[in-house]
Design a protein around this nucleic acid. Structure first.
Lengths: 134, 134
DNA sequence: CTCAAATCGGACTTAAACAGTCGTATATAG
DNA sequence: CTATATACGACTGTTTAAGTCCGATTTGAG
């Protein structure tokens, strides 16, 4: 199946919410969690990853929360996915690094043609920015 | 994660093998299974689905096997995926039909922008044919 | 006619990925 | 000091994919 994880869906919804605030107003995880019915703990982790990736800025302590760190037009969907998933989405196992790589097959006959498809998909994710989602 | 299933990978490898035969020679599932180290039972099922979808033709009984049913140039990768998965791959839950649809969220704020990305991905899968993989 | 080789197809088990939960630590405004 | 918020690792449960098993059917060849 070719599908985004719930984490990414939650991240997109949250980012859209944060980005649609006027000015750089701070939004709490709880606020988003309540409004969209997203499990708080899970959402919190997603926001933490987006924060570590520099997409949003976190403000700790009382009256803390999150605000956008960048111009929405500069945030590509692919960046968001990478920030949340930790890895760049790859279409087939034979394209990933590490032990699960192509070596499983004596001869991987489909790697090179799939590279093209992969590039097209990446382009699809890069071509949309947060600004277009808001 | 955005990744093709093993079944689809196996299917592509198998189709490439079958398509690379000269003439319309018949290839058995065992032959492919052995050559590429793919679990026989699993591969068999993949081939059966491709057969039901009319991508390949099955020949039962002794000296049976599979051969291509169509011109490789007419077989899109998207067709292959659909034949094997049974469903059209959808990028986010909110885009699928049925009970797992968008209604989970009071307000799904990301559906419409993701539709564009979805269309681009589908185009990526449609733009490559079996002929280009051989 | 019989047998072996092959597809057919449902049911089952195992493994891996994902979703979600819990507990605790840290920061900070008031 | 305390209530409120993020930070983060560890854990559990659920779902989905991967792989296995078993028997049925088809059919060419001896």
């Amino acid at each position: 199946m070719v599908r985004l994880s719930k984490r990414v869906e939650y991240g997109l919804i949250a980012l859209r919410h944060i980005a649609s605030q006027r000015g750089a107003e701070i939004v709490t995880a709880k606020e988003i969690s309540d409004k969209y019915g997203i499990p708080f703990d899970l959402l919190a982790k997603v926001l933490q990853r987006l924060s570590k990736a520099g997409v949003i800025v976190s403000h700790q302590g009382v009256r803390g929360g999150y605000s956008l760190a960048l111009d929405p037009r500069a945030v590509q969907v692919s960046t968001i996915i990478h920030a949340i998933e930790g890895t760049t989405p790859v279409i087939a196992q034979c394209m990933s690094d590490g032990p699960a790589s192509c070596e499983v097959f004596d001869v991987c006959t489909i790697k090179s043609p799939l590279t093209k498809v992969q590039a097209n998909i990446e382009r699809a994710f890069m071509s949309m920015t947060l600004a277009e989602i808001v």
